[in-house]
Amino acid sequence: MLAISGVLNVTMGLILVVLFHLDVSGVAAATVIANIVSSMILLYRLTHMDAVIRVDLHELGVDLLTLRQILRIGLPAGVQSAVFAVANIIIQAAINSLGTVVMATSSVAFNIEIIACYVLNSFGQACATFTGQNYGARQIRRCRRVLGVCILEDFIATAATIAVVLFFGRGLLALFDATPEVISVGYTGLVMVFSAYTFSMLYEVMSGYLRGFGISLVPALLTVVGVVGVRITWIGRVFPLHRTFEAIMIVYPISLAATAMFIGVALLRYRPSKRFAAKPFTASSRTD
């Protein structure tokens, strides 16, 4: 469904922009259409599959206890993701102050960075899912294995993705803007951001591991401190003294290293695999 949505998005975008000259509104309309089509196909599949996972629309309802558990884990996880957007707005404001070339470079580089970012984040999500499943099945030893496997696989997949992106980086940047200055500055930005991905990988997987045990608020709060706190402080105190693109981008590895360290300390502090190993599993066990 994602593949269909992606192809439809690009195709409709070209049709609406090139043939109907709708510009930005055409791109937006193509995205909405692609999402609607893929959602409808998914809904059809869910309502027509076998009895094990089939969705009956007539039986949909809200269980308040389940809703409370979902919100307890989901809201902090959502805040944890949202703080990156807040921090990036602050960084983007600093980048914009350096002029149009740097601003264009940042926009172009972001479209390439996101490729590796999606690969990296997927293992953190997988870690939360498999940890939660094994915790629910009282297979605590497997939870520890999930953490190790996800870190190893995430490192390999992310490293491979970064290597490919950096190898073709200048060519990819040229697809968006062939200006030599934009390509040079953009490639420098890619290298600096990717240097932070080792810390980001550890942070995402460890956070997912804690969320799998229902510990969601702690990593969210530590992310606010490590990401938003460090970046605001850096942009407010250090950047005014060194107004360069490199001075801005170095905050990525610094902030993510701090966040990974905070999450690592929390993991050692909570030791959820031992904390919950001797406890019987109940709904109240999944708490911060």
Rank of each mutant, 00 (worst) to 15 (best):
R211F: 09
S195Y: 00
Q139F: 14
V225P: 12
A160W: 03
L22D: 03
F155I: 15
S81R: 01
Y270G: 05
F199L: 10
G226N: 00
T198W: 07
G169M: 00
L8H: 06
H242T: 12
V224T: 14
S184M: 09
I162K: 01
S200M: 08
A258K: 02
G169E: 01
A178K: 06
V230K: 07
I232R: 04
V225A: 14
G214H: 10
A29Y: 05
V37R: 01
S25D: 00
V32Y: 05
M201V: 11
R269H: 10
A178W: 02
A109W: 00
S107F: 05
L202I: 05
I232L: 13
L57I: 15
A278F: 10
A258T: 11
Y252D: 12
R68H: 11
Q92T: 15
L46F: 13
G61I: 09
L71S: 07
I215A: 12
G226Y: 08
C150M: 15
A77D: 07
L267M: 08
E181K: 11
A34Q: 09
L210M: 06
L222K: 03
H58D: 14
G186S: 09
V265G: 12
D288W: 14
V193R: 01
V227I: 15
L221Y: 10
R286P: 12
G169D: 07
L267C: 13
V83P: 02
A260Q: 03
G264V: 13
A283M: 15
A29D: 06
L14C: 08
M249T: 04
G78P: 07
K279Y: 01
G236I: 10
V32D: 05
G124K: 03
A277F: 08
N96M: 07
I33T: 14
T161H: 03
L43C: 14
A87Q: 01
Q69T: 09
S216P: 07
V79E: 06
D177P: 06
V182A: 08
V251C: 13
S285C: 14
F199K: 02
K274P: 02
G226E: 08
A51H: 13
M192N: 11
V218E: 10
I151W: 11
E153G: 08
I91Y: 08
S81W: 08
F213W: 09
D154L: 11
V227A: 01
L166T: 09
A196C: 05
I162Y: 03
G171F: 07
V224D: 05
N134E: 02
P280W: 05
I53N: 13
G229K: 09
A247I: 04
T287Y: 14
A137F: 04
Y135L: 09
A174N: 02
V251T: 12
P253V: 03
G74M: 04
S38E: 01
S285P: 06
L16N: 01
V27E: 00
A82C: 10
A163Q: 02
Y197L: 03
Q139H: 13
V218A: 13
P280K: 09
A257S: 12
F245T: 10
L98Q: 11
L42R: 07
M1S: 00
R237K: 13
L268E: 02
C143D: 06
S122A: 07
R243Q: 15
I140H: 06
M192D: 10
T158A: 10
A93N: 11
S285Y: 09
I151H: 14
L14Y: 09
A51T: 15
